[in-house]
Write a protein that binds this DNA or RNA. Structure first.
Length: 260
DNA sequence: ATGCCCTATGATATAGGA
């Protein structure tokens, strides 16, 4: 079983990239983030033609998450338990479903903007709600393989950015953000570390200033999974080739393969 | 020190991304 998480940075701007990737790598389950479209505007027909069911959640301009599956898609849950609001809005940043016997969540964690910005406090509250949701589901669950995958907007260690010296007073690397990721271990979730196919195992490279060409990336798209899931992992890797293509997203797909 | 690029939108600028 092949599962992938990919911040696609507008699903409609990249629908041809998406379908090409699906045809080439044949994933069973796909978690997308940053759809940048409404739920109704998701290109359902394009992926249905390749055998995928879709559960999408979007409100238009920013954010937006989806799950695609060709191994069943049931028990869909939209938003977190007690998900905090920003600007009086519950933003479309989380969707969960059971696909082929695996419980999967696609999440797009708030960016945080600046450490003293209200968005940063929101980010930490959001991660706390994510933990609560995971704890509640795992406590009620039937021992299914369980994974929260997506764009966490946190680099778990200093090795996960090109140069920690460039991140003074920056988000994504603060102790509080990393503690919020570490706290997911309390819910029974630990990272599945992907392989880099070349260079460092980064998953995001800013479009600006030739960051990709200079190897200046970050590892912020994560796979957080329970022990039952992790015991089935046969491989995990980052498709940096997809970041190279003209018209690609600024994030690379992160793939995890499970054996039966 | 700042912007570089890319996206979507009551668009002819702006906000957001990280």
């Amino acid at each position: 079983m092949r599962i992938v998480t990919w911040n696609i940075n507008s699903v409609n701007a990249r629908v041809e990239r998406l379908t090409a990737w699906l045809e080439l790598h044949k994933p069973d389950v796909v978690a997308l983030q940053e759809l940048k479209c409404t739920t109704d505007a998701f290109p359902v027909d394009a992926v249905a033609a390749l055998g995928y069911e879709v559960a999408a959640l979007g409100d238009g301009r920013w954010n937006g998450v989806a799950l695609l599956s060709r191994v069943g898609l049931t028990d869909v849950v939209r938003n977190l338990e007690g998900q905090p609001e920003f600007d009086d809005s519950v933003e479309p940043r989380a969707i969960g479903a059971t696909c082929g016997g695996v419980r999967v969540w696609s999440v797009y964690v708030p960016n945080g903007r600046e450490p003293d910005h209200a968005h940063y406090a929101y980010k930490l509250e959001w991660l706390a709600a994510l933990k609560k949701t995971a704890e509640a589901e795992l406590a009620a669950g039937a021992g299914l393989p369980y994974a929260i995958i997506g764009d966490f907007n946190v680099a778990p260690t200093d090795e996960d950015v090109w140069d920690i010296a460039d991140f003074q007073n920056a988000t994504h690397v603060t102790a509080a953000e990393r503690a919020a990721i570490d706290a997911l271990t309390g819910a029974g979730l630990d990272e599945v570390m992907p392989r880099a196919l070349k260079g460092k195992p980064f998953t995001f490279w800013d479009y600006r200033a030739l960051m990709f060409q200079k190897g200046m990336g970050m590892r912020i798209d994560l796979i957080m999974a329970n022990d039952v899931f992790r015991a089935r992992v046969s491989d995990a890797w980052i498709d940096r080739d997809e970041r190279k293509v003209k018209g690609g997203s600024d994030h690379a797909p992160v793939v995890v393969d499970l054996h039966d």
